[in-house]
Amino acid sequence: MGFKLLSKLLVYLTASIMAIASPLAFSVDSSGEYPTVSEIPVGEVRLYQIADGVWSHIATQSFDGAVYPSNGLIVRDGDELLLIDTAWGAKNTAALLAEIEKQIGLPVTRAVSTHFHDDRVGGVDVLRAAGVATYASPSTRRLAEVEGNEIPTHSLEGLSSSGDAVRFGPVELFYPGAAHSTDNLIVYVPSASVLYGGCAIYELSRTSAGNVADADLAEWPTSIERIQQHYPEAQFVIPGHGLPGGLDLLKHTTNVVKAHTNRSVVE
């Protein structure tokens, strides 16, 4: 069995187990497998329904001669939608809004960016022009300005110390501490036991640490421990890039980060 097929099978099995364990909360999309990078042309966006009122959005972007996937989250909030992270750029984010209108038909009224990198804030200006209120932590807003990236308009308070959590509509926002970046936030959907790890969490097929220019490698494993301790009931975990899975993604990420750190020390 090929690795790609095995990865998709694991996603399907995880979703099936969740649907059985929580039949009222989960209505997993039966329309197909989780979209992969090879299936999404740059400039297009796919939506994948995880649970009743919960979707991931998947886009792709060219970077350094390669094409990478990027995940975000959409959560229903009454007759409105909360968006977590842009679709990595203005063109993708405009396509995301169009796809949401086509498939869901509810307005996106608020959006949260989970850290300051372009795959999370690139497209904020498109959201703002569409009347979406954009939010991020003060740290993310400051770092985005320093980096020359787009800056969300509103500040999220109460997320300055490791372990801080605040309720934001249908989700809980959690600051686990520094990891992929010093400002990275985690998003949890309690009604569906869905954990969105953003770039602080890796997919299972990833074996290298990737972009760690703004990471705190020493603190990252401790931050992941905080996530595990705060959300032990999480059933569906979405990484910032690639295929979702279960809580095993947290341990896998820790292993990859520690291996990278150990290699760096040896070198």
Rank of each mutant, 00 (worst) to 15 (best):
P152M: 03
V266D: 15
V75Y: 00
Q49C: 06
V132S: 04
A15D: 10
Y175G: 00
V187L: 04
G240T: 02
A200C: 06
T254Q: 12
P35M: 07
A215I: 05
L159E: 01
A165S: 14
F116A: 08
P152C: 01
P244C: 02
H241A: 01
G131V: 05
H154D: 08
L127Y: 04
L156F: 06
D118K: 07
A213P: 10
T253L: 01
S160M: 12
N149E: 08
V45C: 04
F26P: 11
A95T: 10
P152Y: 01
E233H: 12
S181G: 02
D79T: 09
S139E: 13
L159D: 01
T109H: 10
Y48H: 14
V146G: 14
I227D: 02
E44N: 13
P35F: 08
R120P: 02
P107R: 14
L249V: 04
R110A: 13
E80V: 08
V45R: 03
G177K: 02
V187M: 05
G210W: 04
A25W: 11
P190H: 06
D164L: 07
T14R: 09
F236R: 10
G65Q: 11
A87I: 01
S62H: 08
T207Q: 14
L159N: 00
T140C: 05
Y34R: 08
R142I: 13
L82P: 04
P35A: 08
L73Y: 01
V75G: 02
I20K: 15
T134I: 02
N149D: 08
V121R: 02
H252T: 03
V171E: 03
L143Y: 09
K251L: 13
T261I: 12
D164C: 03
G123I: 02
G177W: 04
L13E: 07
L5T: 15
Q235A: 10
H115E: 00
H57D: 04
G78Q: 09
N71Q: 05
N71Y: 03
L5R: 15
S208H: 12
F168A: 01
L143T: 03
R46C: 06
V212A: 14
N255V: 12
A200H: 05
A215E: 07
V132I: 13
L250W: 02
P244Y: 06
L10R: 11
S38I: 08
G123C: 04
K258N: 13
A178C: 04
V237T: 04
T14V: 08
E172I: 06
V256L: 08
W220V: 02
E80S: 09
I227P: 02
P152H: 04
P107C: 05
V37T: 13
V265A: 12
S27N: 09
G123P: 04
E172Q: 06
T114I: 00
D85H: 03
P190Q: 10
A51K: 07
L13F: 14
E147A: 15
E80T: 09
T140F: 04
A259N: 09
Y135A: 01
L217A: 07
G53W: 06
I238W: 03
L173H: 07
A19Y: 15
